[in-house]
Computed example of a mutant assay.
Amino acid sequence: MPDPIHITRFIFIDPSEIEETFVRGTGPGGQNVNKVSSAVQLRFDLTNSPNIPEAMKRRVGVLAGKRLTKDGVIVIVANSHRDQPMNRSDAQERLVAMLVEGSHVPKARVATRPTLASKRRRLDAKSVRSDVKKMRGPPSDGQ
């Protein structure tokens, strides 16, 4: 049995959850590209994965974007290499990177207000700047 794929220290996925199909790829390879199925189409059923928490599934679903099907399956196509094993490892690395990024809980934003002193400094600077600009105008009749 293959070793589990570790996402974080506590979250891992079983390699049997990943389905790979090999298709003819586009890109480098010359005439060989028309004969050999070197591109990899990796499918991972995100919604039915038992090892991923629900909150993480939602975050990964947003990260996956158009790579997520209506059934909740992530589809990753790798065809940048001429070699099937290299495309396979590339697709798995991209899946793991997406899951790792989705495992991080975003920091909650705490709403803050500017201090009274900073408001005063801002208004004082505005009035100084306003006076500078007034002095640039044509002289007015002082009488």
Rank of each mutant, 00 (worst) to 15 (best):
M1V: 11
D3W: 02
D3N: 12
I7F: 01
T8L: 00
R9K: 11
R9A: 08
F10L: 10
I13N: 02
S16Y: 13
E17D: 15
E19W: 14
E19Y: 11
T21Q: 15
V23H: 08
R24D: 02
R24K: 05
R24G: 06
G25H: 08
G25Y: 06
T26Q: 15
G27K: 10
G30M: 05
G30C: 01
Q31H: 08
Q31S: 04
N32T: 10
N34S: 12
N34V: 09
K35N: 08
S37F: 06
S37A: 14
S37L: 13
S37I: 06
A39V: 02
Q41P: 01
L42F: 01
L42Q: 04
R43L: 03
R43N: 14
R43Q: 03
L46D: 05
L46Q: 03
T47N: 15
N48L: 08
P50I: 03
I52H: 01
P53D: 02
E54N: 12
M56L: 06
R58C: 06
R58D: 07
R59P: 02
V60S: 00
V62E: 07
A64M: 03
G65E: 02
R67W: 06
R67T: 06
K70V: 07
D71Y: 05
G72E: 00
V75D: 04
V77M: 11
N79E: 12
N79V: 07
S80E: 14
S80N: 14
H81G: 08
D83V: 11
Q84A: 05
Q84Y: 08
Q84M: 09
Q84G: 00
Q84T: 05
P85H: 04
P85N: 04
M86V: 04
M86L: 14
R88S: 13
D90K: 03
R94K: 09
L95I: 00
L95D: 01
V96L: 12
A97H: 13
E101D: 04
E101Q: 10
G102M: 00
P106D: 02
A108Q: 13
R109H: 10
V110A: 13
A111G: 07
A111S: 12
A111V: 11
T112Q: 05
T112I: 12
T112D: 04
R113F: 10
R113T: 11
A117I: 09
K119Q: 13
R120C: 09
R121D: 15
D124T: 05
A125P: 04
V128L: 13
R129P: 08
S130M: 05
S130Y: 11
D131P: 07
V132G: 13
V132R: 15
V132D: 13
R136P: 06
P139I: 10
D141Y: 15
D141W: 13
Q143Y: 14
